[in-house]
Protein backbone atom coordinates (compact mmCIF):
# COMPACT_ATOMS: atom_id res chain seq x y z
CA UNK A 1 0.00 0.00 0.00
CA UNK A 2 1.23 3.42 -0.97
CA UNK A 3 0.16 6.25 1.27
CA UNK A 4 -0.38 9.73 -0.04
CA UNK A 5 -2.73 12.62 0.46
CA UNK A 6 -5.19 13.26 -2.36
CA UNK A 7 -7.24 16.46 -2.19
CA UNK A 8 -6.54 16.66 1.52
CA UNK A 9 -7.52 13.11 2.34
CA UNK A 10 -5.08 10.46 3.49
CA UNK A 11 -5.31 7.73 0.89
CA UNK A 12 -3.81 4.26 0.67
CA UNK A 13 -3.47 2.88 -2.85
CA UNK A 14 -2.84 -0.73 -3.78
CA UNK A 15 -0.74 0.04 -6.83
CA UNK A 16 2.49 -1.07 -8.49
CA UNK A 17 5.04 1.59 -7.44
CA UNK A 18 5.94 2.09 -11.09
CA UNK A 19 2.34 2.77 -12.10
CA UNK A 20 2.00 6.34 -13.31
CA UNK A 21 0.13 8.49 -10.82
CA UNK A 22 -2.45 9.19 -13.55
CA UNK A 23 -3.73 5.62 -13.57
CA UNK A 24 -3.55 5.32 -9.79
CA UNK A 25 -5.72 8.42 -9.50
CA UNK A 26 -8.17 7.44 -12.24
CA UNK A 27 -8.45 3.66 -11.98
CA UNK A 28 -7.80 3.08 -8.29
CA UNK A 29 -8.79 6.29 -6.49
CA UNK A 30 -11.57 6.64 -9.12
CA UNK A 31 -11.02 10.35 -9.56
CA UNK A 32 -11.60 10.69 -13.28
CA UNK A 33 -11.37 14.47 -13.61
CA UNK A 34 -7.66 14.09 -14.43
CA UNK A 35 -7.33 13.02 -18.06
CA UNK A 36 -5.12 10.87 -20.26
CA UNK A 37 -3.94 12.62 -23.40
CA UNK A 38 -0.60 11.27 -24.56
CA UNK A 39 1.14 9.15 -21.92
CA UNK A 40 4.45 10.94 -22.50
CA UNK A 41 4.08 14.23 -20.66
CA UNK A 42 3.61 16.08 -23.96
CA UNK A 43 0.07 17.43 -23.74
CA UNK A 44 -0.61 18.37 -20.11
CA UNK A 45 -4.10 16.82 -19.91
CA UNK A 46 -2.97 14.84 -16.86
CA UNK A 47 -1.58 17.81 -14.89
CA UNK A 48 -2.03 17.65 -11.09
CA UNK A 49 -0.26 19.39 -8.25
CA UNK A 50 2.23 17.56 -6.07
CA UNK A 51 2.94 19.63 -2.96
CA UNK A 52 1.66 22.59 -4.96
CA UNK A 53 3.89 22.04 -7.97
CA UNK A 54 2.29 21.13 -11.32
CA UNK A 55 3.42 17.73 -12.60
CA UNK A 56 2.47 15.47 -15.48
CA UNK A 57 0.88 12.54 -13.70
CA UNK A 58 1.14 10.26 -16.76
CA UNK A 59 4.95 10.13 -16.43
CA UNK A 60 5.24 10.33 -12.65
CA UNK A 61 5.41 6.94 -10.92
CA UNK A 62 2.96 6.78 -8.06
CA UNK A 63 5.86 5.91 -5.75
CA UNK A 64 7.24 9.43 -6.28
CA UNK A 65 4.03 10.77 -4.80
CA UNK A 66 4.28 8.60 -1.70
CA UNK A 67 3.92 10.76 1.39
CA UNK A 68 3.21 13.80 -0.76
CA UNK A 69 0.10 15.87 -1.13
CA UNK A 70 -1.65 15.59 -4.49
CA UNK A 71 -4.31 18.00 -5.70
CA UNK A 72 -6.49 17.09 -8.67
CA UNK A 73 -9.17 19.15 -10.39
CA UNK A 74 -11.70 17.69 -7.96
CA UNK A 75 -9.76 19.33 -5.13
CA UNK A 76 -8.94 22.66 -6.77
CA UNK A 77 -12.16 24.23 -5.56
CA UNK A 78 -15.54 22.97 -4.51
CA UNK A 79 -18.87 23.38 -6.24
CA UNK A 80 -19.84 26.05 -3.69
CA UNK A 81 -16.45 27.65 -3.54
CA UNK A 82 -14.78 27.54 -6.93
CA UNK A 83 -11.14 28.49 -7.35
CA UNK A 84 -10.59 31.85 -9.06
CA UNK A 85 -9.34 29.98 -12.11
CA UNK A 86 -12.52 27.92 -12.35
CA UNK A 87 -14.63 31.06 -12.02
CA UNK A 88 -12.64 32.81 -14.73
CA UNK A 89 -12.96 29.73 -16.96
CA UNK A 90 -16.74 29.89 -16.60
CA UNK A 91 -16.91 33.64 -17.11
CA UNK A 92 -14.85 33.46 -20.29
CA UNK A 93 -16.71 30.36 -21.49
CA UNK A 94 -13.34 28.73 -22.07
CA UNK A 95 -14.29 25.06 -22.46
CA UNK A 96 -15.42 23.63 -25.76
CA UNK A 97 -15.20 19.84 -25.44
CA UNK A 98 -13.67 20.44 -22.01
CA UNK A 99 -11.46 17.37 -21.95
CA UNK A 100 -8.11 19.15 -21.60
CA UNK A 101 -9.41 21.86 -19.30
CA UNK A 102 -8.68 20.12 -16.00
CA UNK A 103 -5.01 20.06 -16.95
CA UNK A 104 -5.17 23.61 -18.26
CA UNK A 105 -6.71 24.88 -15.03
CA UNK A 106 -4.21 23.02 -12.86
CA UNK A 107 -1.33 24.57 -14.81
CA UNK A 108 -2.96 27.99 -14.66
CA UNK A 109 -3.61 27.76 -10.92
CA UNK A 110 0.03 26.86 -10.33
CA UNK A 111 1.21 29.79 -12.42
CA UNK A 112 -0.98 32.22 -10.50
CA UNK A 113 0.25 30.84 -7.21
CA UNK A 114 3.62 32.46 -7.90
CA UNK A 115 2.64 35.25 -10.28
CA UNK A 116 -0.74 36.92 -10.05
CA UNK A 117 -0.13 39.34 -12.91
CA UNK A 118 1.54 37.26 -15.61
CA UNK A 119 2.39 38.85 -18.94
CA UNK A 120 1.36 37.20 -22.23
CA UNK A 121 4.85 35.76 -22.51
CA UNK A 122 4.78 34.38 -18.97
CA UNK A 123 1.39 32.78 -19.65
CA UNK A 124 2.67 31.26 -22.88
CA UNK A 125 5.74 29.86 -21.14
CA UNK A 126 3.72 28.37 -18.31
CA UNK A 127 0.96 27.01 -20.53
CA UNK A 128 2.71 25.77 -23.64
CA UNK A 129 2.86 22.24 -22.27
CA UNK A 130 -0.93 22.05 -22.29
CA UNK A 131 -2.49 21.22 -25.64
CA UNK A 132 -6.07 22.05 -26.56
CA UNK A 133 -7.33 20.74 -29.91
CA UNK A 134 -10.60 22.67 -29.80
CA UNK A 135 -8.56 25.88 -29.81
CA UNK A 136 -9.41 27.62 -26.55
CA UNK A 137 -6.01 29.29 -26.12
CA UNK A 138 -7.16 32.91 -26.61
CA UNK A 139 -9.76 32.47 -23.89
CA UNK A 140 -7.37 30.62 -21.60
CA UNK A 141 -5.04 33.61 -21.80
CA UNK A 142 -7.82 36.02 -20.91
CA UNK A 143 -9.15 33.78 -18.14
CA UNK A 144 -5.73 33.56 -16.51
CA UNK A 145 -5.43 37.34 -16.49
CA UNK A 146 -8.92 37.68 -15.04
CA UNK A 147 -8.24 35.06 -12.36
CA UNK A 148 -4.98 36.81 -11.48
CA UNK A 149 -6.80 40.09 -10.96
CA UNK A 150 -9.38 38.36 -8.82
CA UNK A 151 -6.68 36.77 -6.67
CA UNK A 152 -4.92 40.11 -6.27
CA UNK A 153 -8.18 41.63 -5.02
CA UNK A 154 -8.65 38.84 -2.52
CA UNK A 155 -5.13 39.25 -1.21
CA UNK A 156 -5.17 43.04 -0.94
Amino acid sequence: MLKLKINGEETALDADPQMPLLYAVRDIAQLTGTKFGCGLGLCGACTVHMDGVPIRSCVTPVSVAEGKSITTIEGLGSADDLHAVQKAWLANKVPQCGYCQAGQMMSAAALLESNKAPSDEEIETAMQGNICRCGTYPRIKQAIKDAGEELQKVNS
Binding site: Q30, T32, T34, E74, A79, L82, Q86, P95, Q101
Partner: peptide, 17 residues
Protein backbone atom coordinates in the same frame (compact mmCIF):
# COMPACT_ATOMS: atom_id res chain seq x y z
CA UNK B 1 -22.52 21.64 -18.93
CA UNK B 2 -19.68 24.10 -18.23
CA UNK B 3 -19.88 23.83 -14.43
CA UNK B 4 -19.36 20.06 -14.64
CA UNK B 5 -16.36 20.55 -16.90
CA UNK B 6 -14.56 23.07 -14.70
CA UNK B 7 -15.06 20.94 -11.60
CA UNK B 8 -13.90 17.70 -13.22
CA UNK B 9 -17.33 16.08 -12.96
CA UNK B 10 -18.17 15.89 -16.67
CA UNK B 11 -18.48 12.33 -17.95
CA UNK B 12 -16.45 11.35 -20.99
CA UNK B 13 -16.21 7.86 -22.48
CA UNK B 14 -12.87 7.25 -20.76
CA UNK B 15 -14.43 8.03 -17.39
CA UNK B 16 -16.91 5.15 -17.29
CA UNK B 17 -16.21 2.96 -14.25
Amino acid sequence: GQQEIVTGQAMYAQDVQ
